[in-house]
Amino acid sequence: MKVHKDPNCGCCGGWAEHMQAAGFPVEIHDSGDMLAVKQRLGIGEGMYSCHTSEIDGYVVEGHVPADAIRKLLAERPQARGLVLPGMPIGSPGMESPDGYRQPFTVGLLQMDGSVRAFSQHP
């Protein structure tokens, strides 16, 4: 997995550690121009998070949990990949010291740029 991130972002490193702990090999690529990375990979403006990853022909935007990525790779849908806009509290890399978690939905980024729900995380 290639993880593109700003060199000054700490939560991106936390997400990369989550992925490594889940058994994914992670290769970090620091970038001073994350907008260019997102545009190159077809991430629309309303879908942005802090880091963008590539794995096995798919793009993964943001703090997507490892189980959603495993599901993507097992099902292999015809899609660009997964998106989790923003930085939901409690998502991997965004853990709260008090254990608080915001519920969030990971979206499946379709080939035409539209998004549909892929997995729910309470």
Rank of each mutant, 00 (worst) to 15 (best):
F104Y: 15
G10D: 07
D112V: 10
Q110P: 11
M87D: 12
G107Y: 02
Q20S: 14
L109A: 11
E61D: 11
A21Y: 02
G44C: 08
P25E: 13
G10F: 09
G10S: 10
V3M: 11
G86C: 09
M1G: 12
C11K: 04
I89N: 03
S91Y: 11
L84T: 10
G81M: 13
C12A: 14
C50I: 03
H121R: 03
S91K: 07
M1N: 06
S114P: 03
L84V: 07
H121A: 06
D67A: 14
G107W: 00
V83C: 12
T105V: 09
F104L: 13
P97F: 11
F118H: 12
V64I: 02
S96H: 15
Y58A: 05
G113T: 14
Q110C: 14
K38D: 04
I28L: 14
Y100R: 15
L41N: 04
K71E: 09
L84E: 09
R76I: 00
G107E: 00
R101M: 03
A36M: 09
G62R: 05
G81V: 10
G42V: 14
M1Y: 13
V106M: 11
G90P: 07
V64Y: 01
R116D: 08
A79T: 09
P88I: 02
E17T: 15
F24V: 04
R80S: 14
H29N: 13
H29P: 00
L72S: 07
G13P: 00
I43D: 00
H4Y: 15
P122E: 09
V59E: 01
G107H: 01
D33Y: 08
D112H: 09
R101N: 05
G86Y: 10
T105L: 01
G23T: 05
P25Y: 02
V26M: 02
S96Y: 11
M1K: 08
I55Y: 01
G107C: 01
R70H: 11
G10I: 02
E17F: 04
D33N: 14
E95Y: 06
S96F: 08
P85W: 04
H51W: 05
L41Y: 08
G57D: 07
V60E: 09
P7R: 01
G57F: 04
V60Y: 11
C50R: 06
C9I: 00
V106R: 08
E27A: 15
E17A: 15
M94E: 07
Y58I: 03
P65H: 11
H63I: 09
I55L: 02
G32Q: 12
G10P: 02
R80N: 13
K5D: 02
A22P: 06
D30Q: 04
K2Y: 13
C9T: 03
